[in-house]
């Protein structure tokens, strides 16, 4: 009798969590799985179209453009962020004055809103009277750079993404570094190993598991990100910064400044599902590749 009551109470304690998660976390996924086989503009009855949405997706140049952009955006961000944050972590892991202050500064962007900072970056990178171009003009470069123009918008978005992410990964690496015993370094330097050798022969192998986990996290997070692009360029100019999940967003909530578009819930669901699958595939490839690398060490 007493036991069942306690069980009931435990279930009651779980219910708010479970119901909210089922209704607002799980149900929407099944909703998407259903509607990706439909054509549905938000009014009238949804029309069942079978696999048509996926056929359309296959021929949809804007989608593949978004896929390419996503890979460039995520790849460019990671290529700089990961080595840079590892370098910062290694530098800050030594006993030095001011390490705490540097850590506080580097991690700060992680606390700030990406959308709000995007507005600030708009003021900074804006081509006509942005702060950077004003600075360039004062230095005598009168034309400045079209930071948000077709040629440089993606680069600018990558720079902003790096700005926001470096401190976070620095901290994760730092935690991993602190797990490496200091006497290994000491005996290595007695044996004459230079700092660069110590980095490649001690730090990297000893950091292995943390490095792999952080990279897995970094890859999935950067493939999914679209908030600052949405605020800054809305995917433009000419789709140059359109990434997968922004494309999905625009199917559901057409943005004002782009040409009049209708809501496409069915096709949008299919695109969202495909994007999730692609991210899953990239993650799996990484997972197996890093396992292979593991056996090499």
């Amino acid at each position: 009798m007493h036991r069942t009551r306690i069980k009931l109470e435990a279930v009651a304690f779980t219910l708010p969590s479970l119901l909210l998660t089922l209704a607002l976390g799980i149900y929407p996924i099944f909703w998407a799985i259903r509607y990706m086989f439909y054509e549905y503009a938000g009014y009238g009855t949804p029309k069942f179209v079978g696999l048509y949405n996926f056929e359309r997706l296959y021929h949809d140049e804007r989608f593949w453009n978004a896929v390419t952009n996503t890979l460039v955006y995520a790849g460019g961000k990671l290529l700089v962020t990961l080595p840079l944050s590892l370098l910062l972590a290694v530098l800050l892991n030594r006993r030095m004055r001011g390490a705490g202050l540097f850590k506080t500064i580097f991690f700060m962007p992680t606390v700030l809103s990406a959308s709000v900072m995007s507005i600030v970056f708009y003021v900074i990178f804006n081509s006509y009277n942005g702060m950077i171009n004003q600075l360039l003009q004062q230095l005598g470069w009168s034309r400045g750079v079209e930071w948000l123009g077709a040629n440089y918008a993606m680069l600018t978005m990558i720079l902003i993404a790096i700005w926001g992410a470096v401190g976070n990964y620095m901290l994760l690496f730092l935690a991993g570094l602190q797990g490496i015993p200091r006497d290994i370094y000491e005996s290595a330097s007695i044996d004459g190993a230079r700092p660069v050798q110590q980095f490649f022969y001690i730090t990297i192998p000893m950091l292995g598991p943390v490095l792999q986990m952080v990279m897995l996290l970094a890859i999935t997070v950067s493939l999914k990100g679209y908030e600052s692009i949405m605020v800054l360029t809305q995917g433009g100019p000419f789709g140059k910064t359109d990434v997968m999940f922004l494309y999905v967003y625009k199917m559901f909530f057409p943005v004002a400044s782009t040409t009049a578009e209708v809501q496409q819930f069915g096709y949008g669901s299919a695109v969202g599902f495909a994007a999730a699958l692609l991210i899953g595939a990239v993650t799996l490839i990484y997972f197996y590749a890093s396992k292979k690398l593991n056996s090499l060490y």
Partner: peptide
């Protein structure tokens, strides 16, 4: 109980973007 925990964990890994906002 195990199912409830698994459901929580699954929401952290599946992401289909803005699609969920409509439902």
């Amino acid at each position: 109980k195990r199912l409830a925990i698994a459901i929580q964990a699954s929401t952290m890994f599946i992401s289909i973007g803005a699609v969920v906002l409509k439902p």
